[in-house]
């Protein structure tokens, strides 16, 4: 059971810095992320947006000479505390990458793969229900319900990406991290992912890294602009795309650099 939320902040970075050896990838990021909302992270390549995303489920841990300073907390708990279990963290914090990577299994088996790994063996009826709910939440159910036992690899790119999203949802993740989830998708597939994310935000905290600033403008409740490892500006999306406070934000969102 997740502890009862005591604050509307789900993820809280406080003076969080990330180093790879002597190189600094993130410099003193202070960024509270609201529960059940979508945060869009935008910025040119090398700005640190993906490093920040990966830091939220400690995917940088195995990178040699990686270390951090400051605090990154989820539900008030410091996820970099020595006693914090990264495996437990990753059950709560799911991730979808730019390139969809379905397992070479059926659609059904792709969704239940994670839940089958953990603890007691679930009943078939429980799994059936989980598959349907997860695929519905990922806006994929109607397209695949008649062929659940065909290979996930035979789906289109957009469908594969929604399958990966369903896989995260089947784990009952509280936080969904997405790194450029629509970079290879056509506008219709992109719209379906965005529709799914908007609906999922009612019960999940979503962090979306995107090079497509218009995507952040469309779906994010709040947007953060990263530049050279620093957080330049963070605020309501409407503000960032109408009256940004920082001229660097204005220059980036209007395409003057990046």
């Amino acid at each position: 059971m997740t502890p009862t939320p005591t604050t509307d902040i789900k993820i809280d970075a406080r003076s969080f810095s990330l180093f790879f050896g002597k190189a600094i990838a993130l410099r003193e990021i202070s960024l509270p992320i609201r529960r059940n909302s979508i945060l869009g992270i935008i910025g040119p390549s090398g700005s640190g947006k993906t490093s920040f995303l990966r830091a939220i489920n400690r995917l940088n841990d195995l990178t040699p000479e990686c270390h951090i300073e400051g605090v990154l907390a989820i539900d008030g708990e410091d996820i970099y505390h020595p006693h914090f279990d990264p495996v437990a963290l990753r059950k709560r914090v799911g991730m979808v990458f730019a390139l969809p990577i379905p397992l070479p299994l059926s659609i059904y088996e792709n969704v239940v793969y994670g839940p089958r790994l953990g603890g007691r063996r679930p009943l078939r009826t429980e799994l059936d229900e989980l598959v349907e709910n997860s695929l519905r939440a990922a806006f994929l159910w109607d397209e695949v319900k008649d062929r659940l036992h065909t290979s996930g690899l035979r789906l289109s790119g957009g469908q594969q990406q929604r399958l990966c999203l369903a896989r995260v949802l089947a784990m009952r993740a509280e936080v969904i991290l997405l790194d450029e989830p629509c970079s290879g998708l056509d506008p219709i597939s992109t719209a379906k992912i965005e529709e799914a994310l908007t609906a999922l935000a009612a019960r999940h905290t979503i962090v979306l890294v995107t090079n497509n600033t218009k995507q952040a403008a469309r779906v994010a409740d709040e947007t953060a602009f990263f530049l050279m490892g620093e957080l330049v500006e963070h605020g309501p999306t409407r503000q960032l795309f109408t009256v940004p406070r920082d001229t660097r934000t204005n220059d980036y969102v209007t395409g003057r650099f990046g």
């Binding site: 218009k214 795309f241 209007t254």
Partner: peptide, 9 residues
């Protein structure tokens, strides 16, 4: 161009 920010204003 679907302008935003200063361009949109």
């Amino acid at each position: 161009h679907q302008p935003v920010a200063g361009d949109l204003r």
